[in-house]
Computed example of a mutant assay.
Amino acid sequence: MTDQLSGQTAIVTGASSGNGRAIAKTFAEEGAAVVCADIIEDPREGGYEDKSELTTHDLIQENGGDAVFVECDVTDREQIRSAIDTAVDEFGQLDIMVNNAGIFTRLVDITETTQEEWHKTIEVNLTGVWNGTKEAVEQFVEQGNGGKVVNIASIGGLVGLQAEPAYSASKGGVVNFTRATALDCAPHEINVNAVCPGWISTAMTREYFDDDEFWEQLSESTPWPRLGVPQDVADACLILAGPYAEWITGHALTVDGGYTTR
């Protein structure tokens, strides 16, 4: 590791499992103090985590890093604000905000999608990113020394994915919200970027990865000779949150093994 985040503080929402856990762990390995924000502490059942008996913040501490957990529902701006206050109180200031928390209900076309599924998906995946970005940017402006926001979108925000109308709409919103917010934040030297993962092996996608037919179809559609893992997403986030991304803003970085290049 290169300690490229040494002395910085990051908040990662949805940090207990999957992509969020990998992001938090990677940032800590690179020297950042991490506030692990999630609605639950323990990894979700059905995931692929190493040492799943440990919470993310315990795992980071076991490895010699600095981390704390805060309970946080990203649909509630007050809880986001509380997470930021924790970062400032515990570690001095906030430098990086990763809006990772999200949901995926099921593969279903628009005729079967319920209004409840639509509203819940938009509330968590898009409004949650709005809440996290707005509160973080206000903190960055108050601090006066810039900052970095990384929003987790999806390839579903770049291309149409069959049987994912609500999810694709929410993630498309994240991509364009990222671009627009980057324009607002550039004068303050605040970078706002997005990562757009393809299919990644997490608890959220487990039922599909365990389906042999679906796995085969997905593998055939992915040019790279393997499917994605959370570390792929974490590494992309590290690029956008690190010192080499100073002049990168408003970018949507695709991490999908070439899935969307066809």
Rank of each mutant, 00 (worst) to 15 (best):
Q231V: 06
P230W: 08
V229A: 15
P230V: 13
D235Q: 13
D256N: 14
W247V: 03
L253D: 12
T249K: 10
A241E: 00
G228T: 10
C237A: 06
I239K: 00
P230N: 14
L240R: 08
P225A: 14
D256V: 09
D235S: 13
Y259L: 13
L253W: 12
C237M: 06
P230G: 15
I248T: 04
G242C: 01
A236D: 05
L238W: 00
D235T: 11
V233G: 11
A252E: 04
T254A: 14
G257M: 08
A241L: 00
Y244E: 09
L238P: 04
P230E: 10
G228M: 10
P225C: 14
G257C: 11
Y244K: 07
Y259K: 12
L227S: 09
R226V: 15
A252L: 13
V233D: 04
P230M: 15
P225Q: 12
L240Y: 02
P230R: 13
L238Q: 02
A234V: 04
G228K: 07
L253S: 13
A234W: 00
T254D: 06
Y259M: 12
I239C: 01
C237P: 02
A236Q: 05
C237G: 04
Q231W: 02
L253H: 12
V255A: 14
D256G: 14
G258S: 13
C237V: 07
V229I: 14
Q231I: 08
P225Y: 10
V229N: 13
W247R: 06
P230D: 13
I239F: 07
P243C: 08
P243L: 07
V229C: 12
R226A: 15
A236N: 08
L240N: 05
D232N: 09
A245L: 03
W247A: 06
G242P: 02
V255L: 12
L240M: 05
V255C: 14
G258T: 11
L240K: 03
W247K: 02
L238N: 02
A234F: 01
P243T: 04
Y244W: 02
G228P: 13
L253V: 12
I248D: 02
P230A: 15
T249S: 15
A245G: 01
G242L: 01
P243K: 05
C237N: 03
A252K: 08
A234I: 03
T249W: 07
I248M: 09
A234M: 05
R226M: 15
L240H: 04
A241F: 00
T254P: 05
H251E: 14
G257F: 06
D256C: 15
D232Y: 05
P243D: 10
L227G: 06
D232F: 05
V229L: 14
L240Q: 01
R226Q: 15
A241R: 00
Y244M: 08
P230L: 14
D232L: 08
G250E: 09
D256I: 07
G257I: 10
P243Q: 05
I239T: 02
A236V: 07
D256F: 02
V229M: 14
A241I: 01
G250H: 06
D235I: 10
T254Y: 04
G258F: 11
A241C: 01
R226P: 12
G242I: 01
V255H: 07
P243W: 01
A252W: 07
I248Y: 01
